[in-house]
Design a protein around this nucleic acid. Sequence first.
DNA 1: AATGAATGAGGATTCATTCAT
DNA 2: TATGAATGAATCCTCATTCAT
Lengths: 190, 190, 190, 190
Amino acid sequence: MRHKDDSKNEAIFQATMELINEVGLSDISMSKIAKRANLSSATIYVYFANKEDMLVKLYINVKEKMSRQMIHELDDSLSTQELCERFMRNSMKFILDNKDYFMFLEQFSTSPLMDKLCLEDTATMFIPLHEFIEKGKQKGDLKPLDTVFLLTYCYFPVTQLAKAHFKGRFEANEDRLQQIIRMSWDAIRL
Amino acid sequence: MRHKDDSKNEAIFQATMELINEVGLSDISMSKIAKRANLSSATIYVYFANKEDMLVKLYINVKEKMSRQMIHELDDSLSTQELCERFMRNSMKFILDNKDYFMFLEQFSTSPLMDKLCLEDTATMFIPLHEFIEKGKQKGDLKPLDTVFLLTYCYFPVTQLAKAHFKGRFEANEDRLQQIIRMSWDAIRL
Amino acid sequence: MRHKDDSKNEAIFQATMELINEVGLSDISMSKIAKRANLSSATIYVYFANKEDMLVKLYINVKEKMSRQMIHELDDSLSTQELCERFMRNSMKFILDNKDYFMFLEQFSTSPLMDKLCLEDTATMFIPLHEFIEKGKQKGDLKPLDTVFLLTYCYFPVTQLAKAHFKGRFEANEDRLQQIIRMSWDAIRL
Amino acid sequence: MRHKDDSKNEAIFQATMELINEVGLSDISMSKIAKRANLSSATIYVYFANKEDMLVKLYINVKEKMSRQMIHELDDSLSTQELCERFMRNSMKFILDNKDYFMFLEQFSTSPLMDKLCLEDTATMFIPLHEFIEKGKQKGDLKPLDTVFLLTYCYFPVTQLAKAHFKGRFEANEDRLQQIIRMSWDAIRL
DNA sequence: AATGAATGAGGATTCATTCAT
DNA sequence: TATGAATGAATCCTCATTCAT
């Protein structure tokens, strides 16, 4: 089916994320989303098969945006350490610039919906990242452990700092960012 | 008059966690919980003011259990490194032994309910832990950074390993546990 | 069955009337009444068979109080005109002194509950009043019409003035009372 | 899209009034109304925001109908006395022809909902009537008292006769109507 | 393509009442 | 006598979805 208006798609996504951040995944509804997006609920069903389908497509869409930004300007010219630092800086920037996206992902990825919908295919988006890590291990820069864990040590501290920042607990400034970059590197380097 | 039955309280908690793990925080309902707990919905309102109240009390209850186990057998006789290791091992054990508790906390803590309800007071449960970290910093064993971050590096890798384990991606065996204990220590030690 | 504590009966009545005036007959509930009267709901069922029974008994109780005060100091020594005036003044005083009672009666007496419960027996309470009117007709002081109507002309203007007073529209002062006493007398006198 | 069906609006109103007359304002429910009107409860919420909104709109609707019929064919060609008589006859006719409407108004107007909703604006519907009374006073036909009271003496006797009629106590025949018209005129004329 | 109308199913919560002490 | 616990039935209302235009 052809959609005249691609912006409607985006409006639905945007409205959904806003609402999820305001009231939570458990309290959104198609009619609330429609109202926020200035549409009729019925219109959503022109673009998506049902609620689940919409949420899944939103998830994939957001995850894609995130992964694209996270691996931005990562290339072989950089040292392993520089790669990790850039990845962490990219991640932090994405999260701070896109609070709604991030908070949506946080909620959605802890919900059983994820497993139910077999959404792990999104892993493919991070293939380049994995490859850099693999190379780092081969070069003897990184500990010879599961790539997933090496990445965990780079990614999670960033999310924790961002969340503390959003909650007003402490600012995600350059100083703190450098601190966790240092800690993460100490964790994963050989 | 009849006595209030403490086991009913527990049955409601148990039913709620089971359901949250099966269908997700967004899809539980008081009637589902009641059915699972073999009660009338109305009975839940004898024990709790409303759904929110029930969830909050459940959260506090579970968080308490978790914090108690996490700081189990941590004392001043241990070196800083041993403390961190034991904390990580305690955490892993709790999560693996109490999947339902953990999964519930994961979902609940990413939901806006948390902020809405100012549930950060639970921080007090971890005071002993914070004190150990502070002492470790004073002794020159740990990097002189925010305690919260030092703890993040100990806690999150554990959760990630546990989650991968639950999803069947790879086993949370002694080997892998030792690996992350090592990485975390490298991250936080001076 | 014997009730130890007669004041409980009264407390239930009082709580019910207060609530009816605050939220309306349609929004009272046994538990609200119990809470207001500082009792357990179950206790109400010690004193009354059920909600309907309670309301009926309350109605009769209030109607009795009202009728007693309305015919206060009416006797054969007074002229027909004086009788009517005193009846109107008694009515006004009762209403102004017992807003809750009056408002309860207003709501209850327009509801189908009334007919359903065949509560017209209360008519007996006003027998003395009817007799005075009959005598007034025989003496040639009053129009030879249905007694009920002659009384209507005395009673309703009072209620209307009282209601306007309660709503703050205008004060039920001596002047206005005299005006309606005059009008009513003009209406019913021969 | 389907068109909003005006008859549905009316069906909801009709069902509500019927039920209010059968079981009372305190015992109607949205589901009973829906059933009576052959609709799904949810459909009512397409037409009205909530129960209160529906009742208020019903009230205004009915009050409008009533006021229109009450002032039917009242014009300056009539003497003050004729005006009052016609008003009383109009009122009686409306009430007898529309028992449901009248009984609904009776219940609704004694309920706290009225005050809560500041529904006194309906007074504007009776402006022409007030003007006639004012003129009557100026011409020296009526007592120089509050218009509201002069009208009270015309209106309430009618309602009382109608209610007695509905209850089968005595018939609202021409004779009785003439009697109260006469009494009311005696009450208000100078 | 777009949408207001329509709805059965289900949401949280409260109800009047009874039970057990 | 008095009452907190317990509950099936009912409350108002919202849900995701489909219909008809």
